[in-house]
Design a protein around this nucleic acid. Structure first.
Length: 440
RNA sequence: GGAGAGGUGCGUGAGUGGUUGAAACGAUCCGCCUCGAAAGCGGACAUACCUUAACGGGUAUCGUGGGUUCAAAUCCCACCCUCUCCGCCA
């Protein structure tokens, strides 16, 4: 969520930035000025009436006390009647305008919550994914003297990936990993967590996979993107399966104030992620690129506003390091204004080369949300010395999506004989140098 | 799942209908004192929103949401959370 006062005072700028995102400002902002003015007028009316009532109440109280004791003069009797009448009138106004303010608040909040974050000035302007800018590239695509296969074929032949039984158990977009396939997933997760905790200074956390609506609201999944989530009914209130560890980890500090000296806080978490993928029917139906459940190692930072863009660069490098150590060819894309997510001010996508499919595929998305999430989730820091607390900047990125890394390993390290070589860095975690065909 | 206790400001903790946005103590900050410090003394010390050129003024907030009342931290209802005991369970 953007700052109310900022939007009010910089409406032209906000409209301009929305256009950069390829959105129609009128559609997004609606009658912002009108609703804002209406809301404020109603608040003023309400508070005036409340003030009057608060002035009258003690007078009525005193007179009623006297009435009880029977020491009320005729004149006071009249005064009491008059005051009672007046306060009744004010009360009617209060009740009426409490409703009107609530309605106006609702309308206003709906507008404000529907406004995406403003792109940072360094973000390239564009109209769609084709305008994303390749910022750097690492390594080179492996050469094969045979036609490399996609991971779904390899996985089945090796006996490590079982999509049929995944479908039997749960339905489409669920997978079962067997034997060294399962172990590869676990090895990758451990490798990534060790790298980030030992060499990059992150603290590991293991959060719940089910969270309440407040948490989903805090990171911006709700109210707008409920359709992408799995909802779990639970008594009077619903719980939601997390679509990414970003949700529970960012919300760790919801409604809290962090000491400035502790910033930046760097956290990493390995969790399962659940996405209903509504609206993506027919997309990536083969293999395990797009699943309802997948596992991911997430990197989250809470940073000082002045240093958040440095932290974004670092966080992105941390994610890249995983690919470098695994010897996987990749490129870093700076998303253009039109392709960024709703809450992001700047995003780098890391795309890994998948030879079986002959394309680069997103394996990490690293974003600076500035204060957009912090404002919603009320995450502050107290500046050194005195001064008012301010909102922190939140950042996150995948470090990496384990399922897609699994795909990258299998496709990039496939051999002519149908086996898959395990990269050096992973061998201590695998206890094997190679995956060879086996029946499940 | 059953029975009970409780949720107040940064912390401890008063407060059962009006003078309490909230005592007291502690923490923190600023002064005074001191060569410096401690102690002592004096003062400051929540958030959001509305209003104002500004100084300031106002409204709301005592787990959350409703209700009763002229008036609610205080009474009523629902929910959430924490703790204790029982049951169940990895």
């Amino acid at each position: 969520m953007l700052d109310l006062t900022f939007v009010r005072n910089n409406l032209a700028l906000v409209e301009e930035k929305l256009r950069l995102r390829g959105m129609d400002p009128n559609e997004v902002l609606g009658d912002f000025r009108g609703v804002d003015a209406e809301r404020r007028a109603h608040i003023t009316t309400l508070e005036t009436a409340q003030k009057r009532r608060n002035e009258l109440s003690p007078k009525i109280g005193a007179l009623k006390q006297a009435e009880k004791k029977g020491s009320l003069t005729a004149e006071q009797q009249k005064e009491l009647a008059g005051l009672s009448e007046e306060v009744a009138r004010e009360k009617a106004v209060i009740e009426d305008f409490e409703k009107r303010v609530a309605e106006a608040d609702e309308k206003f909040k709906a507008i404000l919550q529907g406004v995406p974050n403003l792109p940072h000035e360094s973000v390239p302007v564009g109209k769609g994914a084709e305008d994303n800018v390749e910022t750097r590239r690492w390594g080179s695509a492996p050469k094969f003297d045979f036609t490399p296969k996609p991971h779904w074929e390899l996985g089945e032949q090796l006996g490590v990936l079982d999509l049929e039984r995944g479908a039997k158990l749960s339905g489409a977009r669920f997978a079962v990993y067997w034997d060294l396939g399962a172990k590869l997933e676990r090895a990758l997760a451990n490798f990534m967590l060790d790298l980030h905790t030992r060499e990059h200074g992150y603290t590991e956390v293991l959060p719940p996979y089910l969270v309440n609506s407040e948490s989903m609201y805090g990171t911006g999944q709700l109210p707008k993107f409920a359709a992408d989530l799995f909802r779990v009914p639970h008594g009077e209130r619903d719980l939601w399966l997390i679509p990414t560890a970003e949700v529970p980890v960012t919300n760790l500090y919801r409604d809290e104030t962090i000491e400035a000296a502790r910033l930046p806080l760097s956290l990493t978490a390995y969790t399962a992620c659940f996405r209903s993928e509504a609206g993506s029917y027919g997309k990536d139906v083969r293999g395990i690129i797009r699943q309802h459940q997948f596992q991911k190692v997430e990197l989250v930072k809470f940073a000082h506003p002045e240093r958040s863009y440095d932290e974004l660069e670092k966080l992105t490098k941390h994610a890249e390091t995983v690919l470098q150590k695994l010897g996987l060819h990749y490129r870093v894309m700076t998303l253009c204004t039109a392709d960024m997510g709703f809450s992001s001010a700047k995003t780098y996508d890391i795309e890994v080369w998948l030879p079986g499919q002959g394309l680069f595929r997103e394996i990490s998305s690293c974003s600076n949300f500035e204060a957009f999430q912090a404002r919603r989730a009320n995450i502050r820091f107290k500046p050194e010395g005195k001064g008012k607390s301010e909102f922190v900047h939140t950042l996150n990125g995948s470090g990496l999506a384990v399922g897609r890394t699994w795909v990258a390993i299998v496709e990039n390290y496939q051999q002519a004989d149908g086996s898959v070589l395990i990269p050096e860095a992973l061998r201590p975690y695998m206890g094997a140098e190679r995956i060879v065909p086996k029946k499940f």
